[in-house]
Design a protein around this nucleic acid. Structure first.
Lengths: 145, 145
DNA sequence: AATCAATAGTTAGTAAACCAATTTGTGCTC
DNA sequence: GAGCACAAATTGGTTTACTAACTATTGATT
């Protein structure tokens, strides 16, 4: 390996790490009896912080595409956690809201998710966080041309 | 945000970055006329470097699970790039080999993949690579208890 | 030699990602 | 106000991930 960028390692490491995180989250959700997938949680989280958000905006914020958001919302609606309300000013749009049950789910799950975030970061420092953000942003940026 | 680990940012950043990498790879594959998905490429790559590997070992090396490997191999076999040969010493196992067409595909695609790796790493330094590996391994390790 | 747990791989079902195509609605222009 | 490009959301098809259940084979124990 003459240079790091020559190795397969960095794609692989990112892939492995995100898979691990998702696995840990999902397993913990199941243990706690939370009937949600990780991606369903991600949407709930964003709707909770942006009541009345549109599906397209939700897609942007989560870096999911429109069909994916449609289908995850279908499941959340079926579970009674979320509702679509017709937008007043644009009849193509829906405004997405948490139902009371969804709000309760959000509040119950949030502390657990926060705990897992802390566990993952462990003893890494603020300086490490700086490195991390800089490196990830840089890779992203290098691919956005 | 009192502490980095309190923010949603690091899960999200890893997720976003790997998605970006996969998108760039896939788009480039399509432009070049390579009829493979990224994950199919990952298997080809590992088989090329480990002729006769078993499916289970392939699964370990790629952090994919057994059913996923089965199905991706099914597709690669159908495309005529790979073949399963019965193992001599254990009739439960297959040994996986590239067919000539698969070898050709591997050799054609490898330089392109290397180029994209280099592009992604860009001007980041060897020191950055050290930080990167340490941080990713640390997160992984924090979740492996 | 017979049993039985463990291993390699497959199959089935659900969820999510991506692309392409479609439907409905908006707003601009002529 | 008719036509047209554009936008929001949905639908369909293929691929991958995860779990669980299943088949066939191996190897260890008794």
């Amino acid at each position: 390996m003459t240079h790091p960028s020559d190795s397969r390692a960095y794609f692989f490491k990112i892939d492995t790490t995100i898979k691990k995180i998702r696995n840990v989250l999902q397993k913990r959700f199941n243990e706690e009896g939370f009937d949600l997938t990780v991606d369903q949680w991600v949407l709930i989280d964003h709707v909770a912080r942006n009541e009345g958000i549109s599906q397209n905006t939700l897609a942007e914020l989560t870096t999911k595409d429109a069909p994916t958001v449609t289908r995850i919302l279908d499941l959340l609606v079926k579970k009674g956690l979320v509702e679509r309300r017709m937008s007043e000013e644009d009849r193509r749009k829906f405004n997405i809201y948490l139902k009371p049950e969804g709000q309760k789910t959000f509040e119950t799950m949030l502390p657990v998710v926060k705990e897992i975030r802390r566990q993952g970061w462990g003893e890494l420092s603020d300086e490490d966080y700086g490195h991390f953000v800089r490196i990830m942003d840089s890779i992203y940026q290098n691919f956005s041309d």
